[in-house]
């Protein structure tokens, strides 16, 4: 058993809806893809493994992190649609595109979060089987997303300050 026994609060629904809308909007606008969003679920277990993740932080009235994680095949197709051409996953352009996608999703959600929320510059993690975690006392909700390019997830771990 972990040494951390603090009871986790439920994530506020008002903080989730903006991300559902922003994922759909950004993918439709930038990659011309319709996104189906499955039933969100609370992340109870440890972090899952991914090939490619964009991480963006929130500070100010809303604090926490949002992580968009992809299998490499899905990320490659999305970046190709986003950039209008195939991009080598080893190149910095690929990471830049994932960072920009993450930034746009967070940026489109931000105005609807209420109050003054600041978003950070995104970090991008590339590498098979990596995991991303955040402080264990912040509740995390996972949005499972599906497009013609494949499936990916958006992990939302934010709360009002």
């Amino acid at each position: 058993m972990s040494v951390h026994q603090e009871k986790k609060k439920e994530i506020e629904p008002a903080l989730i809806v903006p991300f559902v809308q922003s994922v759909r909007k950004v993918l439709a606008t930038m990659a011309q893809m319709e996104t189906t969003i499955g039933r969100p679920y609370g992340k109870q277990k440890g972090p899952s493994e991914h090939d490619c993740s964009g991480i963006i932080g929130f500070s100010g009235k809303v604090i926490g992190t949002v992580v968009v994680s992809f299998p490499l095949a899905t990320a490659s197709k999305l970046v190709a649609a986003f950039a209008g051409d195939e991009v080598d996953p080893q190149s910095s352009d690929f990471a830049d595109a994932i960072g920009e996608l993450t930034n746009m999703i967070a940026g489109a959600a931000k105005p609807q979060l209420g109050g003054d929320a600041n978003i950070t510059v995104p970090s991008v993690i590339m590498g098979r089987g990596h995991t991303v975690s955040r402080p264990s006392d912040i509740p995390c909700l996972v949005l499972p997303c599906s497009t013609v390019a494949g499936e990916f997830i958006v992990e939302i771990a934010i709360r009002t300050a």
Partner: peptide, 21 residues
């Protein structure tokens, strides 16, 4: 300045990049 909450990455072969930095 404000500080974001930390995120932690783990793996055996990964790179971390901060685009635009």
């Amino acid at each position: 300045c404000q500080l974001s909450l930390p995120s932690v990455v783990e793996g055996s072969d990964y790179s971390m990049r901060v685009p635009g930095s």
